[in-house]
Each structure stands twice: as C-alpha cells, then as structure tokens.
C-alpha cells in the first residue's frame, strides 16, 4: 500500500481513536432521543387509553418508538462521520485505492449476534403483549385462544355490509341498532361478521380491529376504561363507498348504557321480530333465491 493511497485520516490508528468519541456521541444522542420519546411523546401516542387494549397498544408503540432513536442515530452518525471524514478532498486522486480490507470477523460476528438478539427480543415482546391483554384487540377468528378471564361479557355483534355497520345485541332480545353505545368498565366481546364482501371493523380509540368476513365470526375483546366518543371505520377496501363507511360510538356510564339499551330495545321491538334469529353468521343479503338477511316486509330492507 503506497503512502499516498492511505493517508493519515484513513489509517487504522486515526479511526481507532475516533471510535470512542463516536460511541459517546451515539450514547448521548440516543439517550436524549429515547427519553424524549418515552416521556414527552409517549403519553400522547395513539390509540389512547380508552380501553385496556388501546392502552396496551399505546404502551407497545411507546416502547418500540423508544428503541428507534438508538438505531436511527447509530446509522446516521456512522454515515455522517464516514461521509464527512472520508470524502475525497480537493487535490486528492479520487481513484486511488483506499483501505484494503474485505471484512472483519469480530464486527460481522457482533453484528449478527446483536441483530439476532434484538429481533428475537422484539418477537418475544410482541408475543407477550399479544397474549396478555386477550388478543390485544385484534380479530381472533371464530374460536379465540386468548380470552378474558371473566365470563360476564357484553356481547356485541358487528354486522358489516356495503356500506354500513349495524350492531346486534343478543343480551337485549337480539335487537339491531345503527348506533353503538358501550358501558364503561366492562369486558366486551365483539362478534364481527359481514353480509357481503370483506370489511373491517376498526374502532380506533378502543384499540379494536377485526376483519368482517362473510360467513365467518371474527371475535375480538376489549375492556372499556374511559368515557368518550370513538370512531368506527371500515379498514378493508369494500367498494365504492368504502371511504364513507364510518360512524361514531360512545363509551358511557353503565347506568346510561342500561337506559339507552332498554330504550332501544323497546323502540326496535317491531323490527327485531322481523330479523332472523340471532346467529354468529348470516346468509348474505341477496334478494331472490335463498332469501336475505332482511325479509321484504322489514323496513330496513329498503335502507
């Protein structure tokens, strides 16, 4: 190696000296970044704390986000230092050879081990927080394996169809409503199904998301903790009016909920009689042979 080719800035000694400084800068910036993410950004991260599941998701997003600054700054500092330090200087022969090494077993070995450990840790972290809050609010299909401990759950059936959601309440005479109210401090079981194409029931603030498939009962759990309004949006493309398929729901006190439910039950009594018997899935709403979800005399059939 000629002296010209390997000037001082690219020598092993010079770079070895720089490494501790770079690590120090990395540690300081990462620490500041991570603390800011955890303490300043963290409490405001979505989807909020309206339910146990939402709070769990918020914790997970907060935790993973806290791990981001160290990785980001590691790469940025490395690239930044390399580009500034070893960029061709004016007057230098740009085609002259730089250092001649093809690998470094220690660095490579460390890289493999660190990335593997990090990845396995993240997988274990994700699995734990998937199982512990009863499926983390995601749709678990017809036979959920992660369920809440309590058996006293409010059953809410979400029926999606192009392009609206309706809700059936088996514990309130199987009535069907177009609005959704939920009592606070209550474990809720959503049974999500569809009458036509694939939709998705996304109750953003509740931390619940479950695809609505025709002929499938997709179960998701959540436990309400705070009062407030939540948004329900369809989250799988379902045709022309997919973008307009949303409504709002409310988490209210248990007494208010009872009052609302009783009132709705009475109000809907005539319609409830026309509905098919409550089931986990229904025949799709095709008129003609095979019948539909709504019989012809049902006022809902024309909605």
């Amino acid at each position: 190696m000629s002296q010209n080719a390997l000037d001082d800035s690219r020598s092993v000694e010079a770079t070895r000296k720089a490494i501790p400084k770079l690590i120090a800068v990395w540690i300081v910036t990462s620490l500041i970044g991570s603390l800011l993410v955890w303490f300043v950004l963290g409490p405001h991260l979505p989807p909020g704390t309206m339910t146990d599941q939402a709070a769990g998701a918020q914790f997970d997003i907060r935790f993973v986000s806290t791990l981001v600054p160290p990785v980001l700054f590691f790469i940025w500092i490395f690239f930044g230092y390399s580009l500034v330090k070893w960029r061709v200087k004016p007057g230098e022969d740009p085609l002259a050879p730089a250092a001649d090494f093809r690998g470094n077993s220690k660095t490579q070995g460390a890289w493999y081990i660190i990335t593997t450990v990090l990845v396995l840790f993240l997988a274990a972290f994700g699995t734990y927080f998937l199982v512990v809050p009863a499926g983390a609010g995601g749709g678990e299909g017809p036979s959920p394996i992660w369920t809440p401990k309590t058996k006293n759950m409010l059953q809410v059936q979400v029926i999606a169809q192009q392009w609206r959601f309706t809700y059936r309440w088996p514990q309130f005479g199987g009535m069907e409503t177009t609005s959704i109210y939920l009592p606070v401090n209550t474990e809720i079981q959503f049974n999500v199904t569809s009458l036509d194409v694939i939709h998705d029931f996304w109750a953003y603030q509740l931390g619940v998301k479950a695809d609505a498939n025709p002929d499938v009962n997709n179960v998701a759990f959540t436990k309400t903790q705070q009062l407030g309004r939540f948004t329900v949006r369809c989250d799988e493309l379902c045709g022309v009016w997919h973008g307009a398929m949303y409504n709002y729901g409310y988490v209210v006190s248990q007494a208010q909920f009872q009052q609302w439910a009783t009132q709705m039950e009475a109000q809907n009594a005539a319609v409830t009689k026309l509905l098919p018997k409550y089931a986990t899935t229904y025949t799709p709403s095709y008129a003609g042979n095979g019948g539909g979800y709504y019989p012809p005399q049902d006022p809902n059939a024309n909605l």
Binding site: R10, S82, R87, A99, T115
Partner: peptide
C-alpha cells in the same frame, strides 16, 4: 421480524464498505 437480520446484512455491507473509504459523492 427475523427478516430484519438479512436486511441488516445489507446495512453492514454498506457501512463496512464506507469505513476508511475514499468517497466520491
């Protein structure tokens, strides 16, 4: 998540190649 490992290899390759290099932007 395992797929991050081979993706990380590509970063290792790039960063190792830039280390003590003569970089033309």
């Amino acid at each position: 998540e395992l797929i991050s490992i081979p993706t990380g290899f590509i970063y290792l390759v790039g960063m190792g190649t830039l280390w003590r290099a003569r970089i033309r932007l």
